[in-house]
């Protein structure tokens, strides 16, 4: 096995008396399509916050390509290739998609502190913005303020922004949350077109999406990893049915 793209080792997070994350260890291989599922309150959001450095773990480590990044800030981890999307849109309402993407790209390639050159005059950056806009079907809206975009397009921009940082590991936090049925197909298409070399951890409630997308599934219950395996194994697992699928179907 090669070096895992992302590894969690014995992560523990205690909030006062509440044990939100209880000794979680797992790995994500380069280019993996992995999903993290679990009922409400299982601690999925806390786990993402631990991985991305928003919250500091009580115990345990986070390794990115075998580098210990536990002590690094979120923005430092982003520069090392760990990016995320947000369950609730975190966009720039008055900037346009083109500007937002240009910002992410210039920040990545080191021209973010450039205060003299007009943004978007470097052909390489313009080409990359265009490539991302096209890939996510946002060319038509590229010069509209983000707040005026339909919700589904905003969700797509959410993913495009994360991708613009050229991550090696991408955490997708419920990318289809709240998207109306008719725009759902666009999200699914965008997900399946993500670059193959980027490892992806999908946190999702929607079981259809999880089982079409993921080749490996981890189940989080009450802060602990209950089990891990291929989609067929998880679907057949009685315990998973009991705590999760049962609830969903009931």
């Amino acid at each position: 096995m090669s070096v895992p793209a992302l590894e969690a080792r014995g992560l523990v997070k205690q909030f006062g008396a509440l044990l939100a994350t209880d000794d979680v260890s797992f790995t994500i291989q380069a280019g993996a399509r992995q999903a993290l599922i679990g009922p409400n309150g299982a601690g999925k959001t806390t786990l993402i916050n631990l991985l991305t450095g928003v919250v500091e773990p009580t115990e345990g480590q986070v390794l990115l390509q075998d580098h210990n990044v536990t002590a690094l800030s979120s923005s430092q981890r982003v520069r090392l290739g760990l990016s995320r999307t947000f369950q609730i849109n975190q966009l720039f309402p008055h900037l346009t998609p083109a500007e937002s993407l240009g910002l992410a790209i210039s920040e990545r390639n080191g021209s973010g502190a450039d205060f003299w050159r007009v943004a978007g005059t470097r052909p390489a950056i313009v080409a990359e913005i265009e490539e991302l806009l096209t890939r996510f079907g946002l060319e038509g809206e590229m010069d509209q303020p983000t707040r005026k975009l339909p919700y589904g397009k905003q969700r797509l921009l959410e993913i495009a922004l994360a991708l613009a940082t050229r991550p090696r590991v991408l955490l997708l936090d419920e990318p289809a949350a709240g998207v109306p049925e008719e725009e759902r197909q666009d999200i699914l298409a965008a997900l399946s077109a993500l670059p193959a070399d980027v490892a992806i951890l999908l946190i999702e409630h929607d079981m259809d999406l999880v089982f079409t997308f993921a080749t490996r599934i981890s189940v989080l219950v009450a802060g602990r990893l209950l089990t891990e395996g291929e989609p067929e194994e998880i679907a057949a697992d009685e315990r998973v049915r009991a705590v999760y699928l049962g609830e969903d179907a009931g």
């Binding site: 947000f86 975190q90 966009l91 720039f92 309402p93 008055h94 900037l95 500007e99 937002s100 240009g102 910002l103 210039s106 920040e107 021209s111 973010g112 502190a113 450039d114 205060f115 003299w116 050159r117 007009v118 943004a119 922004l161």
Partner: peptide
């Protein structure tokens, strides 16, 4: 400039 764009981003959504 990209710097100015980053300032706008901080204003709009510092978390992101």
């Amino acid at each position: 400039s990209p710097f100015g764009l980053a300032l706008a981003a901080i204003r709009e959504n510092r978390l992101r």
